[in-house]
Simulated scan of single mutants.
Amino acid sequence: MKNTLEAAEDLIKRHEAFITTMDDEKINVMLTFANRLMEDGHYAADKIHKKAENINERRNMNRQRADKQLDRLRDQLLLQQFLQECDELRDWLHDKMADAEDETYRDAKNLHSKYLCHQAFEREIAANKDRMMRLQKAGKEMMAEKPETREQLEPILANLSTQCDQLETTTTEKADKLFENKRAVLYEQSCDDIDCWVTQQESQIIQAESAKDLTTVNLLMQNQNGIRPAPGYPSQPDHTEKETMWRLLGADKVGITLTESLAMQPAALVLGLYFASARSSYFSTGKVCKDQVEDYASRKAMDVRTVEKWLGPCLAYDVE
């Protein structure tokens, strides 16, 4: 048997055509004539019976052999179809591995577009994982039904599984590298933006312009506008956020502490979030309901009673 899908299909067509040449009608006519001769008491009835029986047995045996051969050819066709699917998946994995190993991400140009493209690439890899799983399942079923195929199929399936795992690993590693490079670029851009903003602020602070009248004073004051909300303000009523700020700043290292009531020591300290923008303004969070407090407590990993204690003035309900 030729080991290609096209050859297997051709062999089946040829064998089916051969089966049609096995003229049962011709043999049936001969058997009917033999039976008539025996019924008429032909002098060679015994010889005719043996001959007819022999031909009929050979006809049945040839039919069985032809059917078995057709079954083998169909099994071979299924095998070749499976092997072709394996070849197609192997080629696809090879092509995708080449894409995954591409290192153009090292070039910072169009890094965001490359990151988005790789996310689409990851989705494609994930979508085709089912293809591998279906092929593995079909291969195991074929080996269980046709043990003679195990020697051929096991190494093929093992190799495909290895390729698939390598592709997933390489794809994940590339995604991590792209993310890190993208984050580094964003950090540099943020630094450049902040540097530009600080330069603008410095130029406004050191400008030599002085106020000559009330109108000029108001215009200059607008350029210096901003807000400094702090824990305890209506826009930030939760004093426990000081603890978060303390950890981030490492304030204890320089001798700055908080009391049990979260007051700052030394008392002359000033703490806040600074927003240097003329468009910034103070606001109030308003009253909060029970479900909001419970959600807030869950996100802060605190018990509800403690949160209610610190948000007392903002509660829209009475604490039991």
Rank of each mutant, 00 (worst) to 15 (best):
L89H: 06
L37N: 02
A34E: 04
A66D: 03
R63S: 05
I27H: 06
E85F: 10
A52Q: 06
L83S: 08
R74P: 04
Q76N: 15
R59G: 00
C86H: 10
L31H: 01
D67K: 12
D87P: 03
F33N: 11
L78I: 04
Q76L: 10
R74Q: 13
I48F: 09
R74D: 02
K68L: 10
N56S: 13
N35S: 12
R36D: 15
I27W: 09
A34P: 06
D10K: 01
I55C: 02
I19R: 14
N62A: 09
L77M: 05
E57L: 11
H42Y: 07
A44K: 13
Q64C: 04
A8N: 02
K47D: 11
H15R: 09
M38R: 13
A17W: 00
M22T: 03
E6Q: 12
D40S: 14
R65L: 12
L70G: 03
D75M: 10
I48P: 01
I12F: 06
I48K: 01
C86L: 13
K51M: 10
H49D: 06
E25M: 08
N28A: 11
H49P: 00
I48Q: 01
Q80S: 05
M38S: 04
G41Y: 10
H42P: 04
Q69N: 08
N35G: 12
L11C: 11
K47S: 11
K50A: 13
I19Y: 07
R74N: 13
D40H: 12
R36S: 14
R63I: 02
K68I: 07
R14S: 11
M22Y: 07
R74M: 08
A45K: 06
Y43A: 07
E9A: 08
N62I: 09
Q81I: 10
T20I: 13
Y43K: 13
H15C: 08
K51N: 07
R74W: 03
N35H: 10
F82R: 06
H42G: 02
K47C: 00
L89P: 03
K68F: 06
H49I: 00
E25I: 05
V29F: 03
A66F: 05
E39V: 07
Q80I: 06
E88M: 13
A8R: 01
E39P: 04
R65N: 13
E9S: 10
R74F: 03
